[in-house]
Amino acid sequence: MDAIPAIRVVDLRKNFGALEVLRGVSFDVHRGSVVSMIGASGSGKSTLLRCINRLETPSAGEVFIDGEPMGGPVTANGERKERPLSDINRMRRDLGMVFQQFNLWPHMTVIGNVIEAPLRVRRMKRKAAIALAEECLARVHLSEKGTEYPARLSGGQMQRVAIARALAMQPKAMLFDEPTSSLDPELTDEVLTVMRELAADGTTMIVVTHEMAFARDASDRVLFLHNGQIEEEGPPDQVFGAPKSERCRQFLSKKLQ
């Protein structure tokens, strides 16, 4: 394992008013590893993911991407210099995000969705962007759907396009926010298959999920969140086989019934 983790989260905290959603979360994600986050609704999993790519601004703590602090470098006298938004935009490119609600842009074709960021953000030439998009669509097994509009796709197909759209930025890590939670059960498999393939290819991934089977056999490490803190963490065998925390055991026994 390399010295600098792809993502390092240090004592991350987030309040919404008086409500403490994250109460000091720290963990590392090493390059090429898959970390699954499980936990009950409201345990802070999604907020944690959104704080990592700064769709939410953390109240305290820091996220490092390849050693670079998202919140801005700390100056000699210990004060944090807040990053300009353009900097955050630049760093976000390195984190692909996949949302529960897919969030494809309905007015663009599938190819249009995938090439948008390479064209506008990476400033790639159109031809190169299309070639890249076709490669990404092939990885999610949707090569033949490039000219369709999202409205014509099934939920599973939409989510796979969303994955391709994130991959097209060639991110250092992929963040999945309950990617199968709004899909019919028969459609979750096609999405999970793609995610397993990405994991097998060595993609660095953080996956917030309710799919215990995926967390168990596709991830390198599992974090169980409870009340905004990491209650249990370890390799899947340990977390699923012999959880130390009583809450984690209860959660899993309900989930695995």
Partner: peptide, 9 residues
Amino acid sequence: EAGYSVGMS
């Protein structure tokens, strides 16, 4: 948010 997440301004 999908736009921001791919680095669009």
